[in-house]
Design a protein around this nucleic acid. Structure first.
Lengths: 243, 243
DNA sequence: AAGTGGTCTAGACCACTCT
DNA sequence: GAGTGGTCTAGACCACTTG
């Protein structure tokens, strides 16, 4: 009964193959978000494996934040909460010291040809095309952050069909809904640059700017977004949990 | 045979009680660091539980980075590698762009009485005493970072017996060796301050300084260190993995 | 009472490392 | 070949939620 997953390779342990099966059904949104997915015994019967094997598969998916188990009720699809996870690391404070969620406004979406450095970061073939975004983030109408974003064309070309004003405040939910790419982890580097003039920030040339380079990965740990953000240090607030 | 761990409370699952038993032996350094710990079947016999239960207990300890399993060889005590984990997040670069490990020099160690704000952060009783450290970090002999560190007196009083020059480059290995406190996670907040003059940095009053506030937790997720670091933005480089 | 996930057991066989 | 951890199974009982 596992011929269908032969393509995954038979060297994978059974519970990993079951995990991939379930994960595939998850990304196809087969199950209603408010209903429990089939029970462990149902799945074990369906896949013809023991309950313990299904449990182990589901355990991994829970670790990956794709499922949530609730004792007595069942196992549920977890919809990623972006504003509570990734975006919380990146904050500005107002003069009263309260946290602010900057408003994201997209300025440009276009297809561009390969850029060796970026293609290298995104682990693409040297000639693969890219999607290029420009975006600013506003606080009280003032531009605090200017972002340049590069994405693999093959995965994100559907973004070209969306008009600028239809992009929401957060990009990652868009990636998820439109391109089926769930951003699951990221690496960020913070540095400071002097003498860089940004077209949107319109900053004095001698001002020290914050520069954040982010490589964001999907669930399969494949880098799918490279982003460079430039910002003013005023009221900037960065928070991170190291585990 | 589990009377000895009655103090942990009998509501804990068996594998959790076994985990705590093993963890206790780990923190007492019962096992040689270069030898495998007793095998799963040996431990299951010793504790009078099934192999599966021991496996689950060890699984958790591996997740916590306390043990490492190597198939065919055994399970080994993992000594925490601080320079490769926590400290990698915090870097300066030289003019060639290469990463530099700043040298840490301790300037002050003393017992102080309670500070309401700090005691609150460290979740101590309002009158509990503290250990206070001052420390600078140097690159090419120049002070790049000035750190103020507060620790619970009860856990860290043995630091008072160590002379300043005997503190090594990294503090966390010291916490581990001398006070049995393994720093396992941390929360850091980066902000910028202007108008703060630091005694060690000896900075101009109008320079914008980086300020990093860190709350570091031990394995039991109890906060055991609060640290405020002030630094120059020049050549500063901060890297973090978000998962 | 029925169904869910949570815990625990016992035992089989496999893959790997060492001697 | 002996010993280790890795995978997989089958089944018992418990804790929790819902009708």
């Amino acid at each position: 009964m596992f011929q269908s997953i032969a393509s995954y390779g038979f060297k994978l342990p059974l519970y990993e193959r079951v995990r991939l099966q379930i994960q595939e059904r998850l990304s196809k949104h087969v199950w209603d978000i408010n209903q429990p997915i089939p029970s462990e015994s149902e799945l074990s019967e369906e896949y013809g494996v023991s309950v313990g094997t299904v449990r182990k598969a589901i355990e991994r998916l829970v670790e990956d934040n794709l499922l949530v188990k609730i004792q007595g009720k069942g196992t549920f699809v977890k919809q990623p909460n972006f504003s509570a996870s990734l975006m919380k690391f990146f904050r500005y404070r107002n003069t009263q010291g309260e946290l602010i969620e900057p408003i994201g406004v997209l300025k440009k979406v276009e297809k561009i040809s390969a850029i060796p450095a970026i293609n290298g970061i995104l682990k693409l073939a040297p000639t693969d095309s890219l999607i290029y975004l420009e975006r600013v983030r506003l606080i009280d109408g003032a531009i605090m952050l200017s972002e340049k974003i590069w994405l693999p064309y093959d995965l994100f070309n559907s973004l070209l069909d969306i008009s600028l004003q239809d992009f929401g405040n957060l990009l990652y939910p868009f990636y998820y809904d439109r391109c089926n790419q769930l951003i699951a982890s990221a690496n960020e580097k913070l540095t400071f640059v002097k003498g860089y003039r940004d077209m949107y920030l319109d900053n004095p040339a001698d001002e020290t700017l914050l520069k954040i380079c982010r490589i964001a990965n999907n669930l399969e740990h494949i880098p799918v977004e490279y982003r460079e953000s430039f910002g003013c240090t005023t009221n900037f607030h960065y928070e991170v949990n190291i585990v």
